[in-house]
Simulated assay, not measured.
Amino acid sequence: MKAIKTNKRYKLVIEAIQNYIIENNLEAGDRLPTENELAEKLQVGRSSVREAVKSLEVLGVIETKAGEGMFVRTFNFLPILENLPYSMMFDRDDLSEVLEIRITLELANLKKVIENIDDEHLKKIELVVEKMKMARKTNDIVAFVEADERFHELLFEPVDNELLKKLLGIFWTLLENAKDFSKLADPNLPAGYKKHRAIYQALAERDHDKLYDLMERHYEASKKHIAANQLKVGV
């Protein structure tokens, strides 16, 4: 390890620790140098090392065990995803690209949904559609958006893939932090309810082609709505 000479020490300490893991071919469970040893090798203060260690723990790269030391952790993508919505609020100007990712993921997993869904789960989705119906009658946009989110959450629950669920959840997190949130819901609630009712019926019939077509058209409308309102991410 080379000595670090910069004002942004903790960021370079992070990079140095990552390089150390790679260069020494360390694997999950292997022990890392102590904070004191790292501070001495890199010629930085312990506070910089401590800050870097905390960041790497959040990212799921290392773990600290009380009384034992620091160890390389089995890679887990979920901690990165949990912090992604926060960082994206500052790095993105709009939701369009995020929506494109969501569309690709959801359409690609519709077959798995149909293969795994049972009647009990279909009933849960039907109840959410009924909530949309009530929100439509009272013109409650917030309640409709909440039901919309729950609809899509339940739709992909039968797919046993936590990473997929996290990725899909990012869209809603960004949506809820968008400026002019009230504009995100299409004001035409009757049409929105009708679309989701049709999607539910295609799912109940286990008709993949029909379901795919309805979902694709639903997203095309969402893309146009977001583009038209120039919705921005951020507070």
Score class of each variant (00 low, 15 high):
Val142Cys: 13
Glu162Ala: 08
Lys165Ser: 07
Phe171Asn: 01
Ile141Cys: 10
Pro158Tyr: 07
Ala143Ser: 15
Glu146Gln: 11
Ile141Pro: 13
Phe156Trp: 07
Val159Trp: 03
Ala143Met: 15
Val142Arg: 14
Asp148Trp: 02
Phe156Val: 02
Leu154Ile: 06
Leu175Asn: 06
Glu146Ala: 09
Phe156Gln: 06
Asn161Trp: 06
Asp160Gln: 11
Lys166Cys: 06
His152Val: 00
Glu157Arg: 00
Asp140Val: 05
Glu149Leu: 09
Leu174Tyr: 13
Asp140Thr: 05
Glu157His: 04
Phe156Glu: 06
Phe156Ala: 00
Ala143Trp: 12
Phe156His: 07
Leu174Gln: 09
Pro158Met: 12
Glu157Cys: 02
Leu164Cys: 09
Thr173His: 11
Lys166Glu: 08
Ala147Glu: 07
Ile141Val: 09
Glu146Val: 06
Ala147Ile: 06
Asn139Gln: 13
Thr138Ser: 14
Gly169Ala: 05
Trp172Cys: 09
Phe156Cys: 02
Lys165Leu: 05
Leu168Lys: 05
Ile170Asp: 08
Leu164Arg: 04
Lys137Asn: 15
Leu175Met: 12
Leu174Val: 12
Leu175Ser: 01
Phe144Thr: 02
Glu153Pro: 15
His152Leu: 13
Phe156Lys: 07
Leu167Trp: 00
Glu153Phe: 06
Leu167Thr: 01
Lys166Ile: 03
Gly169Tyr: 00
Phe144Tyr: 07
Lys137Arg: 11
Leu155Glu: 08
Lys166Thr: 01
Ala143Pro: 13
Thr138Val: 13
Val145Gly: 02
Pro158Asn: 15
Leu168Asp: 01
Lys137Ala: 11
Leu164Thr: 03
Phe171Gly: 02
Arg150Met: 14
Leu164Phe: 03
Thr138Met: 14
Lys165Gln: 14
Ala143Arg: 15
Leu155Tyr: 08
Lys137Thr: 11
Phe144Gly: 01
Leu164Pro: 01
Leu163Arg: 06
Asn161Pro: 15
Ile170Pro: 00
Glu162Asp: 14
Asp148Ala: 03
Asn139Pro: 15
Trp172Phe: 14
Leu155Arg: 01
Leu154Lys: 09
